[in-house]
Amino acid sequence: MSKSSVAGAPPAALGTAPFARTVATVSVMGVLVVGQMYVTIPLMSELGDAWGVSAGAAAASTTAFAFAHAVGSLVSGPLSTRFGRRTVMVANVLAMAVVTALMPVATSLATGVTLRALQGLFAGSFIPMSYAYLHARIAPHRVSLALTVVSACMGATVVIGQVEAQLVASLLDWVWVFWGTVPLLLAGSAVSWRVLLAEGRQPAAVSGGAGLRAALGGRMFPLYLVILIGAGSLTAVYTGVQLFGPADVSGGGTLLALRASALPALLGAILLAPALARIPAPRRAAGALVVTAAAMLAAALSGDSAIALGAALFAFMAGFATLGPALIQSVGARAGAAQTTAIALYGFTLNVGAGAGAQLAAFFGGFTTLALFLALVLAVAVGGVLRGVRRT
C-alpha cells in the first residue's frame, strides 16, 4: 500500500489537491493556530500580574494549552472519520477564535488556565488532520516536500509565536496578542474552507479498535517516544532561556534576537527538502536527532554568551525542522490503513511532550544543567529511531 494513501484509497481516487495553494494555506493556518501555544512564554510576567500570581505560576497556561491540545489531537481521528478532515479543522479553528477573544478578560489563574486549555483543545485537531490531509491529497512524489514545508512552518511557531507576542506586547499591549489573532483565525477559516477539498465519511475498517491497535503496534512505539522527547526538548529549551538564560540575556532586544536566530534554520530546511527527501525518513530522523543533541551540548557550553547560545539554537532548530517531517513520514508509512489514527496519536504524543517540556525547565537550577539533560535524552532518542529502522 502506498504511504500516501489513507483509508485504503490512493490520492487519485480521493482527488489530488493543488500543491501550492494547499501547502500555503495549511502552513499559514498552522502558524496561526499552533503559534498560540507559545505566545504565553514571553507574557508570563504580564499574565502573572493580570492573574495575581507569579510568572512561574503563569507558565501553567502553556502547559494547559499543550495537554489539552494533545487531547484534541487524539479525538480528531474519530471525528474526521465521521465528518471529514476539512470540516473538523475549520470548525475547531472557529471555536478557537471565540475562546481566544475571551483570554484577555480572564482575571484569575484558574480562569486563564481554563481558557488556555479550551484554546488548546480546539487547536488540537490541526496538526494531525493537516498531516493526514497532505498524505491523502498531495501527489505521492510531492508529499515529502509538502510535509517538510508545513512541518517547518509549524516548528517555526515556537519562535514566531514568541517573537510576535513580545513585539505586540511592547508596541501595543499584551491583550492584543490574543485580540489581534481573532480576525486572522476567522479569515483563515474561510480561506481553508474554500481551498481544502471536501471529504465524506471514511471507511469504518480503518477506525475504531482495529485502527488503534495498528497505530499502537510495536514498531510504532519507538517513533512515538522520539516525538515525545523532541517536542519536550523544544519547549523546555525556550522556556529555560526565558526563565534563566545566560547573564547577558537581559534585555528584550537580546531575547528577541535569540528567538529570531532560529528562523533562518527553518528556511534552510525548506530549501534543502528536495535533497533530503532522497534519504530514507528513519535515517533522516536519526541524523536530525544527532544534530539537536550536539546543539544542546553546545548550548550547555555556551556559558554567558548570547552569541554562542544563538548559534546553538540555530543548529537545534535546523535539526528539529528536519526531524518533524521525517517522523511524520515514518509514522504515516508504517501505519498503513490506520494512518489517520496513527497521525492523531502523533499529534497527541507531540503535545504531551510540549506540555511536559514547559514544566521541565523549572526543575533545573540553571540553563546549563537543563541543556545537558536535553542533550542526553536526545542522544538516547537516536537509539529509539535506529531500533525502529531495524524493526521495519
Results as ranks from 00 to 15, higher is better:
10 P>H: 06
13 A>R: 05
14 L>S: 11
24 A>I: 03
31 V>F: 09
32 L>C: 13
34 V>C: 14
58 A>V: 04
58 A>W: 04
65 F>R: 02
66 A>P: 12
66 A>L: 11
76 S>H: 09
81 T>A: 10
91 A>Q: 06
99 V>F: 06
105 V>A: 13
112 G>P: 07
115 L>Q: 01
119 Q>A: 11
126 F>L: 14
131 Y>Q: 13
131 Y>G: 04
132 A>Q: 15
135 H>P: 02
140 P>H: 14
145 L>N: 05
152 A>V: 06
155 G>T: 13
161 G>T: 03
169 A>D: 14
178 F>S: 02
179 W>M: 01
186 L>V: 15
186 L>M: 10
190 A>G: 05
198 A>N: 09
201 R>L: 05
203 P>W: 08
203 P>T: 05
213 R>C: 11
226 V>Q: 09
233 S>H: 04
238 Y>R: 07
248 D>G: 11
259 R>V: 12
264 P>G: 13
268 G>N: 04
274 P>L: 05
277 A>C: 10
281 A>C: 10
286 A>T: 03
310 G>A: 15
316 F>G: 03
328 I>C: 03
333 A>I: 00
335 A>C: 06
339 Q>V: 14
356 A>E: 08
359 Q>M: 08
360 L>V: 05
372 L>C: 00
373 F>L: 02
376 L>W: 06
380 V>G: 13
381 A>K: 12
385 V>K: 01
